[in-house]
Amino acid sequence: MNKNEVPAWVLSLELDEIEFIKKFILSSGSLKELAKGYNVSYPTVRIRVDRIIQKIELNSKAENEPFIAYIKQMAIEDRISIDDAKRIIDKYRQERSNT
């Protein structure tokens, strides 16, 4: 898969969230094993999974907004950095929620 094919929802994740997903897959989807690996309780891991799910769902919906899709596409094409794209999108969402 090349850079242009990376789904926008993946780009919205932080590095530690991607690492968490990797460990989840490597533990065959076992939240119990994941909790052991992180040395935390099962409910703590479940909360983290739920937050990542919400973030993915939110970003999947946001992809339908033309401005956000445009900014993400610019980041995918290396026309702006991913960090700058995140800041622009965060500012855009903040401004929209204030109106």
Rank of each mutant, 00 (worst) to 15 (best):
Y42I: 12
E95C: 13
A69M: 11
I47R: 05
K91H: 09
K55G: 02
R48M: 00
V10S: 01
A75P: 03
D78F: 09
Y70E: 15
L15R: 01
K91F: 15
L26A: 12
F67R: 10
T44K: 05
V40M: 08
E33T: 12
A8Y: 15
I88A: 02
E14K: 04
Y42E: 11
R96W: 02
N4S: 11
D90I: 06
D84K: 15
I56D: 01
A62S: 13
P7C: 10
S28H: 12
G37K: 14
Q94I: 13
M74G: 06
I52C: 01
L15M: 12
T44L: 05
K61P: 01
K72L: 09
K23Q: 14
I47P: 00
D16P: 09
E5T: 15
V49M: 06
I71K: 15
S30F: 14
I53N: 02
N98A: 11
K23M: 11
K32V: 11
S41T: 14
S81L: 04
D90N: 05
F20Q: 04
T99Y: 12
Y92T: 05
M74D: 01
D78I: 12
E14A: 06
I76G: 05
P7A: 07
I80R: 07
E19M: 04
Y70C: 03
D83I: 14
Y70T: 08
I89F: 04
V40D: 01
Y38Q: 06
V40Q: 02
G37P: 02
F24P: 01
I82A: 07
Q73A: 06
L31W: 05
P66T: 12
I88S: 06
I76F: 14
G37R: 14
G37S: 15
R87I: 11
Q54V: 04
I71M: 14
I71Q: 12
V49F: 04
E14W: 07
I52E: 00
R46E: 03
P43Q: 10
I80C: 04
P43W: 10
K72F: 08
D83G: 02
S30I: 08
P7T: 13
S30R: 09
D83T: 14
Y70F: 12
A62N: 09
I88N: 05
N59F: 07
L58Y: 02
Y70H: 14
K22I: 07
I80S: 02
F67N: 03
L58S: 03
P7H: 14
E5F: 14
V49S: 04
E17S: 09
I82C: 00
N98Q: 13
I25D: 00
R46Y: 05
A69P: 07
E77Q: 15
K22F: 01
E65A: 12
A35G: 07
I71P: 05
I68A: 01
N2S: 13
I52M: 06
N4R: 13
I82F: 11
E17V: 11
V10W: 00
Y70Q: 13
A62W: 13
Y70G: 10
K32R: 05
T44A: 05
I18F: 02
S60G: 06
L58P: 01
I56G: 00
S97Y: 02
I76D: 04
R96E: 03
Y38W: 08
I47F: 04
E65M: 15
S28W: 01
K36Q: 09
N4Q: 15
E65T: 11
